[in-house]
Design a protein around this nucleic acid. Sequence first.
DNA 1: CGGATTTTGTTCCCGCGTTCACAAACTCCT
DNA 2: AGGAGTTTGTGAACGCGGGAACAAAATCCG
Lengths: 238, 238
Amino acid sequence: MSPAGAAQGTPEPGLPRPGGIPEATVARLPVYLRALVALADRGVCTCSSEELAAAAGVNSSKLRKDLSYLGSYGRRGVGYDVEYLRYQIAREIGVTQDLPVVIVGIGNLGHALANYAGFTSRGFRIVALLDSDSDRLGERIGDLPIRGLEELEGIVADEHVAIGVIATPAPAAHQVCDRLVSAGVTSILNFAPTVLTVPDGVDVRKVDLSIELQILAYHEQRKASALSVDGTAEAVTA
Amino acid sequence: MSPAGAAQGTPEPGLPRPGGIPEATVARLPVYLRALVALADRGVCTCSSEELAAAAGVNSSKLRKDLSYLGSYGRRGVGYDVEYLRYQIAREIGVTQDLPVVIVGIGNLGHALANYAGFTSRGFRIVALLDSDSDRLGERIGDLPIRGLEELEGIVADEHVAIGVIATPAPAAHQVCDRLVSAGVTSILNFAPTVLTVPDGVDVRKVDLSIELQILAYHEQRKASALSVDGTAEAVTA
DNA sequence: CGGATTTTGTTCCCGCGTTCACAAACTCCT
DNA sequence: AGGAGTTTGTGAACGCGGGAACAAAATCCG
């Protein structure tokens, strides 16, 4: 069904898209998008669900079901047009035009984020780097200067910033978060090891390096003890 | 079967620990651990599941169920002993003594990771920083020198490194991954935007900054269109 | 000492996500 | 044109995780 055209006054019960895509699927769409870009760069024009699934590291059944939430963009017996599907996914995610982003906290990590090409090349535009340390004020990273935290509200309003990245130390994180939210930011990517509480309507995603390592450590310990306690291949559910 | 105790031929479904903890629970244990450390630092000796759950950002029912997989470490009517529970979780995760870690790829991100206090203070010890760029060789970050990639195998063997962190550009990631695995590393934390294929028995966790942003972008777009199309507060499932 | 109160540990139920399996649709070859 | 071979899209079964509700245990107080 063409999303732009039909008058959506009728909430068809058969419609697979009441306006939302399952969260698990949303989390995989960017992976598919990246795989498609890689295929396109290699000059591939068409691919089957099997090929794309392999490139994305998922099984083909899941891939097809995920794509089916977007619509029917494949041709049976043929596969998917790489460029076409790439555009459709980009449109669905909403990264067809660059979204403005601010980064708060330009320590080691913030510095790395500011330089990270993946941001700018994948649908985002960093509009400001903010830090409370007045010593760093004016220092440039790429072509952006580090600006003072007091400019936060003005920048968010002027540039219509909807996404904020928090890369501050933990103690400052929640205060920064509150200011971002008050200023109008409705999506936050949090690198600080803190639980952020936000109002309804604001999305927070957390990236925590030491938590990831600890999860690995747990599995590492399991592997080690399974080996040392029992020589035989104990049934270790992968 | 279990040789100790009564000949219990029946694999009791009531037994909560056949040797494994649900993956979702494992992913939350580090969060509880951090919350407990924070409580201990504030001098709190005892806490209820409600308090700890609030500090960790989960609901108390989930917390209690998670903890029940580890054993019965609480006292009904009282709560949990902060120090005791902290130790039990740390032991379960396997971070009571420091695990050796190598970081490969000392660009902006690798640099940030090398400086990140959360690694060293939370059960890990960075034993080496590796980079293929010979220009950076010998440069020191903290008290560690950057060493050449050719030392990878030797370091992994000598230091019994089980966990590797990949912070290289995408094209180099899989090659580095293969070398780490061949050298004996069985857990990998991957920051490169690449799908890594590894043998059974090796765990990979992926942290992808642009994917996180794209997930936020999707929800951002949904919020925006929900507002512009419909002025009333449409039921947006958070 | 016994009842009221607090808080844990567990059970039950529901919904989401994954996977299998298959019909429908399309191409290609004879 | 028709049949064989591909490949998508989807319906149904299944298992896992989340949340509410409850019983068991421990403390507190009269």
